[in-house]
Write a protein that binds this DNA or RNA. Structure first.
Lengths: 346, 346
DNA sequence: CTGAAAGCGCTTACAG
DNA sequence: CTGAAAGCGCTTACAG
């Protein structure tokens, strides 16, 4: 890298003083100061020749400009959902001429603290927190709140009343899914997922119950399977057990899975046992991971997080102090695995 | 955001002069300057209380520190390959305590120029160019080379002799794939892809020819299908035509696809026609997009780009001026779609 | 119409 | 042991 030219250097070349150069290069700021036409032309020519750009660090130091940087905090073991959100977020920020700076936070408090400190250094315009379910989150964020700029969370953080956030309605898509199955004549609709400890999962369960309630189907606890596998091997047997319980013993005719990976594993297990999808069992995933959903045979219906709208609302909330967005509704995306019109006859 | 405390303010509170504060807070820089124990303790206490952090913009302005920012240029219509590369890249940069700043460049020259100018402003430590097949690339990069820091390209850029880059060996995985098929008894091995205009695609074709040559199988132009679909509809009929030509007329017993999306479409078409995979035709994709390859039945063998090693070499090349890395070898990842041991008997 | 000066926050000579 | 001063690059009063 060669060195960049400064106003001082331009001034030397043009035989004027540095503040004159500044006045010429920032006509807007100094409408009152008139500079002679020849001087102005000369300065502009030299600046253009040397590809002059004002030094951003200097302008930030003066407080004349912000960094135009927005920090985005994610977990290094990022799930597909967050991953799918990053590109829409980058686009939204690009639209308002801001750049995204990714920071990693996790249960390593020292590392997370370093990331937050670093964010302070960069003089960010704002921070978007995608992932805040970490050790000591409350303390960390309240401690750094005073030196960080505006923070917007994805989903409400624990223990902060006045935090600003965009909420995802994890239930709405499940309600839709249940109704879709019932409308297609299914009556034994199962829900199968990882855990109910985090709010996103608990809301899926609530959506399931609401869907059943609104369609007049009684809740049957035997059709609800919640289990957290500790290892890949355990996952395999869990899925096999799940199909045993739900399909063989309980005669489920539809399964909603907590995520697309589970739905995929279930689909494979059903295939292994010659249980037809959607003929015998309709199957609906969660997350609408396109590469998964479009790769299976039949293609996998799934509940979409609407990352585009989510990204838009996150950025809008960051920009507009008085903007309090409605939750982003998750939505069922139909595909063959839940197509109940072309079902085999009873 | 509350305001951050400065050395000046600490000095006021401690009733000392600002340069004393600087000396205490940077003991390494000023081993010669001794400061009284009480004064030092007082200053340190005040700094800690107020969460003091040195102002990065100021230190950059002085030239005492770099930005610790590395710019990464991508295309907004990013392909899966680049997308898969971003997270490993973020991790590699995180390891050396640098952050990634994403910039978008494309055929809109004005926009691309704005991005490059912006990169200059941020006083980056380096730039990694993942995507440089754009209008006016040569002019743009040569123009900004003088004001940008060290640049490392993914694959050699056109028209620059001394550019530093990490090259992906797109051929090696295809050679491996051909040999694998031949070792499994296949003799009619087809290659099916988008175009041969860009080097990455051309190298696939070269790998195909080398693989055939080394296994003593004659090249048959009827088994090579190169066609660029203009629309999704055209893509559908293209895939159908491809299966007609390769499998029905030319009796291909193995197909290598230019990317996983094509492999997936071919797999579905084969399934529709009751052509068994891998029994009748072995199928190998390109890209090893896990969500695709693991979602199909049978699972899809594919050629992996080795993004982990690629990210490592890109960052190492950026850090080490005398480091000229070997190309990153693409590698076949075996899965059932190309499992030739359990083939149905002839 | 143009220049001299102050100040953003910091580090590094140098003076006392 | 501590302070005063210069300077990184810039903008904004203000003086001539």
């Amino acid at each position: 890298m060669k060195t960049r030219i400064s106003q001082k250097e331009i001034a030397r070349l043009a035989n004027v003083c540095q503040s004159t150069v500044s006045a010429v290069l920032n006509p807007a700021n100094r409408g009152n100061t008139k500079v002679g036409a020849e001087t102005r032309e000369l300065i502009l020519r030299i600046a253009a020749e040397h590809n002059y750009r004002p030094n951003l660090q200097s302008r930030q130091l003066r407080g004349d400009t912000t960094s135009n940087l927005v920090g985005v905090l994610i977990n290094p073991q990022i799930s597909q959902f967050f991953y799918d959100l990053l590109l829409p977020l980058e686009r939204e920020l690009h639209n308002i001429h801001k750049r995204m700076l990714i920071g990693l936070i996790d249960n390593d408090v020292k590392e997370s603290e370093a990331t937050l400190g670093n964010f302070v250094d960069y003089n960010l315009d704002g921070v978007i927190v995608l992932h805040h379910d970490i050790v000591d989150a409350e303390r960390l964020f309240s401690e750094y709140a005073s030196v960080l700029p505006q923070i917007v969370y994805l989903d409400p953080p624990r223990g902060s009343q006045e935090a600003r956030f965009v909420q995802v309605d994890y239930a709405s898509g499940v309600i839709e899914a249940v109704k879709h199955c019932v409308a297609g004549g299914r009556k034994r609709i199962a829900l199968c997922m990882n855990d109910v400890y985090n709010p996103a999962m608990r809301r899926r369960l609530e959506g399931y119950r609401i869907g059943l309630l609104e369609t007049g189907i009684p809740f049957d606890e035997n059709l609800l399977l919640v289990r957290a596998p500790a290892s890949p091997v355990e996952f395999e047997s869990l899925i096999s057990d799940a199909v045993d319980q739900l399909c063989v013993r309980e005669h489920a005719d539809a399964i909603i899975a907590g995520n697309d990976e589970w739905a995929l594993a279930i689909l494979k297990e059903l295939h292994r046992r010659d249980i037809a999808v959607p003929g015998d069992v309709a199957l609906i995933g969660y997350g609408n991971t396109l590469n998964i959903c479009r790769s299976t045979m039949p293609e996998l219906a799934s509940i979409d997080h609407r990352v585009g709208e989510l990204a838009r609302k996150l950025v809008e909330t960051l920009r507009t102090p008085e903007f309090f967005p409605d939750p982003v509704q998750t939505k069922l995306v139909m595909r063959n695995s839940a197509d109940l019109n072309s079902t085999k006859t009873l």
